[in-house]
């Protein structure tokens, strides 16, 4: 065994830059994913059969195909149809569409888990659907959704490593590039793993604090 981590330490600024890109991709795809997921959930619960069916198709197709294939279609497939996306756009959008499908199901389940009596009570007071949703059902559903959403956020942060395959130089790809010049696979990959773990841990701790704070209310 001749492990030498000094090489990796020298490359740490480069890896931290990769971390930053990973965080950027994750942040924007989650933000967009939440928009897709919320819209998807509302459509899934809508009485409108067209919206309902569209949301069902969205979740069905995305959950049933690998995220890598989805990204490849966006980045390598679409140019053939004349649609050329930058790697960052394809990566963020692809991850957002993917995570949005899972978030759709999380939010749908969260809304359905709120006691039906809450909607009836708010409607009996004269609230319309939008008012009931934003003032009464939404806040209660949000609390129920937090643990599965945290799970999904972590998944998305880890899935962002797949964006390396559409040539985004995030943490994983940065690591690979370092290996090309140093041939230190073990050291580099373990450090990359630790960096993912640190990013997710910070997020998990924050989510835990949020959850406990809400539970007290």
């Amino acid at each position: 065994m001749n492990l030498d981590y000094s090489i990796v330490v020298n490359k740490l600024p480069l890896l931290l830059e990769g971390c930053w890109v990973t965080l950027e991709i994750s942040f924007f795809s989650l933000l967009l994913g939440m928009v897709f997921g919320t819209a998807g959930a509302l459509c899934r619960l809508s009485a409108n059969p067209v919206l309902n069916r569209l949301a069902f198709l969205y979740v069905w197709i995305i959950r049933g195909t690998p995220v890598m294939v989805q990204l490849f279609i966006l980045y390598f497939g679409l140019p053939q149809l004349g649609i050329k996306l930058s790697s960052m756009t394809a990566g963020v959008f692809g991850l957002a569409v993917n995570t949005g499908a899972y978030i759709t199901e999380i939010i749908r389940a969260g809304i359905q888990a709120v006691d039906k009596g809450q909607l009836e009570a708010s409607m009996s007071l004269g609230m319309n659907y939008r008012q009931s949703m934003t003032r009464i059902i939404g806040p209660q559903a949000a609390k129920i959704c937090i643990p599965p959403l945290v799970n999904q956020y972590i998944m998305t942060l880890k899935n962002s490593s797949i964006a390396s395959l559409v040539t985004i130089t995030e943490l994983f790809r940065t690591g690979e590039q370092i290996i090309y010049t140093t041939f230190r696979s073990f050291e580099v990959y373990t450090v990359v793993a630790v960096l993912y773990l640190i990013m997710n841990s910070i997020f998990m701790i924050a989510a835990d604090k949020l959850e406990k704070g809400l539970a007290r209310r």
């Binding site: 006691d115 009596g117 809450q118 009836e120 009570a121 708010s122 009996s124 009464i136 806040p139 209660q140 609390k143 209310r217």
Partner: peptide, 12 residues
């Protein structure tokens, strides 16, 4: 006005 068997107060 409607009053329900299970109260249905807004818990939050």
């Amino acid at each position: 006005g409607m009053v329900f068997q299970r109260f249905n107060l807004f818990p939050h």
